[in-house]
Nucleic acid binder design. Structure first.
Lengths: 173, 173
DNA sequence: TATTGTTATACTCTATAACTATA
DNA sequence: TATAGTTATAGAGTATAACAATA
């Protein structure tokens, strides 16, 4: 049960390891989505929309954005043809945001790319250490979410099963 | 040597744990630096400058920025009174970027704040699990840096010893 | 000619305040 | 009045291309 040989690297210390890992992951994420022409936040949006068709206000809560920031995000994503605004009949002030066909396509390919590249980040670790790292990071994330009343289900680009097309599969093809 | 009780939280999986942890750390970092009126990138700049007095080109390499982005960053930081441009006599095209007194002061208080808050992020884990997590994340960072020829010494806001005033201590007070 | 750095331009992303339309 | 969303504005951060000054 001792760590694999690689974990004998110099310890950065908890705080620097947090910060530097976070920068590495952020750079990989941005580079992967950018290589498909999708800015990082819009890629995150695609991931969130694979699971739901939120209103603008819902989306602001899920992504932690001000309502005006949400408007701007959806404007830009709509200009790229990734999402559309769908009127809500019950409340004519409100929209639901949904993926377009192009949005579904990009969500899939970008999600696969991000998943593959982030897996490579840990492929030098033993299976045991990979599971250990995953559990410890998950524990930190859950602990933080619980302390701040955050809904973890918002998800990211990478967290969908490949057969899960989401609530609007009728709009596909 | 079994994990502590908390690590029995639901496993997000390696990829989602990477992404969500990276978002949590990024948010904590931004909020901590923002509470002192310092935008995140400028805070990272302060951390880097505690260790050296780089030229604009050095800085671009250290932070992974284009030279035009570096110009913009130093312009903004200078406008806040955090850094100054120092002429290099040997090459009159070049500047060195150095912290001002206010820059040194803010680098210290912001660094302490970030360190404290990021430590809290893992304070529910046992000492053993904290060390394990630190080592595993360090291993991932080192592995990634080695594969991409990256200089890890760039550092972050948090990685200085409190007694290390850096190369320009004569300019303090 | 090559390098250092700036400027012009164009995006993305973020928030505050004022606004419109609907509930 | 309160809520959903947009607009106006301001600023941070990113990059590409054209440029000036120096090596």
């Amino acid at each position: 049960m001792r760590p694999t040989a690689h974990t004998t690297d110099v310890d950065l210390g908890l705080v620097d390891a947090f910060v530097q890992l976070s920068m590495v992951v952020g750079e990989i994420f941005s580079a992967a989505t950018g290589s498909h022409g999708v800015p990082a936040l819009q890629a995150r949006l695609l991931g969130v929309l694979r699971d739901r068709e939120p209103t603008m206000a819902d989306l602001g809560r899920l992504l932690g954005l001000d309502k005006s920031s949400t408007t701007g995000l959806i404007d830009r994503a709509q200009r790229r043809g990734l999402v559309r605004r769908v009127r809500v009949p019950e409340d004519r002030r409100s929209y639901r945001v949904a993926l377009t066909d192009e949005g579904w396509r990009l969500a899939a390919v970008v999600g696969e790319d991000v998943t593959r590249q982030l897996h490579q980040l840990a492929d030098h670790l033993s299976g045991t250490d990979q599971r250990r790292l995953s559990l410890l990071m998950s524990s930190v994330v859950h602990h933080h979410a619980a302390e701040h009343g955050i809904d973890l289900s918002a998800g990211v680009v990478a967290n969908r099963r490949p057969d899960d097309k989401g609530p609007t599969e009728k709009t596909l093809q």
